[in-house]
Simulated scan of single mutants.
Amino acid sequence: MPFLLLLALFVVVPILEIYVIIQVGQAIGALWTIALLIADSILGSLLMKSQGRAAWRRFQTALAEGRMPAREVLDGVLVIFGGAFLLTPGFCSDIVGALLLLPPTRAVIRRIVARRFTFGLVGDVPSPRVRSARPRGAGGPGTPRNPAGGGFDVEGTATEIDPRRLP
């Protein structure tokens, strides 16, 4: 599967971009095609700048409110990818970049990406290590209960580290 993805990324996509550029060039002329590619790169960089700043402000607001900025981080990543697609010469990549930079379509893509990458990570069956780990006092043979009844007994060692000696 990774081979097919790389084949599509490095062979099929550039051929498709060249084909579309040639078709647009035949329809409107070579100079207008070049001008259009330059103009959409400039407009894309301006859009990326404004959307990147907005994503950064939302990220800082989330941190100031003390909540995890997961949505804001994903928005920032999508803005960076959208800007990279818009700066890449070609009309197909410009369409993808615009979809990633425009807030309504980015929200849809963000939900798809979040669903795709969080499935299997959160709320599913825990790993065997988590299932088999049982704190002391949780019942079972050989696990004495804390006599005070307030929590579990934990065995271990601790080492004090001088913060001045940290790298």
Rank of each mutant, 00 (worst) to 15 (best):
V73N: 10
V73L: 14
D75R: 11
G76H: 08
V77G: 01
L78W: 02
L78G: 02
L78S: 00
L78F: 01
L78V: 00
V79W: 01
I80Y: 06
G82L: 00
G82A: 02
G82P: 01
F85Y: 10
F85V: 03
F85Q: 10
F85E: 07
L86A: 10
L86M: 15
L87I: 10
L87M: 13
T88S: 15
T88Q: 11
P89N: 08
P89I: 06
P89V: 12
G90Y: 03
G90S: 05
F91C: 03
C92L: 15
C92M: 15
S93Q: 09
D94I: 06
I95K: 03
I95H: 01
V96F: 05
V96Q: 08
G97N: 06
G97S: 07
A98W: 02
A98Y: 03
L99E: 02
L100S: 04
L101E: 00
L101N: 01
L102N: 08
L102F: 13
P104D: 08
P104V: 06
T105S: 14
R106Q: 01
V108L: 14
I109H: 00
R111S: 09
V113C: 05
V113M: 03
R116M: 14
R116P: 01
R116A: 13
R116S: 15
R116F: 13
R116Q: 07
F117V: 09
F117H: 05
T118R: 13
F119E: 13
G120W: 10
L121R: 12
L121D: 04
L121M: 13
L121E: 11
L121Y: 11
V122L: 12
V122P: 02
G123W: 05
P126I: 10
P126N: 14
P128W: 10
P128T: 10
P128D: 11
R131V: 09
R131M: 13
P135V: 15
A138R: 06
A138H: 05
G140M: 03
G140E: 02
P141Q: 11
G142I: 11
G142S: 14
T143V: 04
P144G: 08
N146F: 08
N146K: 13
